[in-house]
Amino acid sequence: MKFLFKILKDFPAYLWSGWGAIASTLLFIALWDLGNQVYGNLVLPSPLETFKTLYIMLQDKDVWQQIDITLYRASVGFGLSLLFGSILGLIAGFFATASMMSRPIVTILVGMPPIAWIVLAMIWFGMGDETVIFTVVVASFPIIFVGALQGTRTLDGDLKEMAESFGFTWYMKFFDVYFPHIFSYIFPAWVSGLGMAWKIVIMAELLATSDGMGAELAIARSQLDTPTALALVTIMITSLMFIEYIVLEPIKREVELWRA
């Protein structure tokens, strides 16, 4: 509770530090507009036109429904990866044999391109939620798993000995010695897993479903409707930026104050 309060208290200062980020975003939009002036509206619609299209789209209930569908798939997929990736990663980290055995499997999972998984999933599950969720899990699970595994593998033996010599209870050992260290590994893994999930969900939808934002993007492509396509991309990017910079980053800063 105290911790939550501290995050909220430091939040304005954190927002204030965001001027640089805003400036570079505006610079990016300026370059985008330059691209529009050079290549014309069909190839690259102007930011203004894109934002206008976006505004009209957001009035439409159907668009929100599509966003909902995508959100649902991404969160179920990411939630499953989070749960199983963290738990299995921790278990694998605590046992040397398990971590040795899991390494090649993780390499296969990381190395296999998601697009190949989509093809397999389409054969296994057909066109629907399961295919998308499966692909999301397959793509973000290994990232989280490796984060948890690394966190447990790299626990400091010297600190364990210190805890032993002072007779820490198991509760203290876990919360004061193991948890902060593991968390400093697993939390960034969650963040990159989330980014991965959000990217993969769109790709899987584009190829394997007839609804969701990915499918909308496919329709925009077939109609050469570049403003809509860019508006959709804008929704994806802003939502990801919101989660990363407004929700996760402040938590990360508080949690990792102790880091050099």
Partner: peptide, 8 residues
């Protein structure tokens, strides 16, 4: 070497 908990 101190062996202090870095997060405390």
């Amino acid at each position: 070497e101190g062996r202090l908990l870095p997060w405390k």
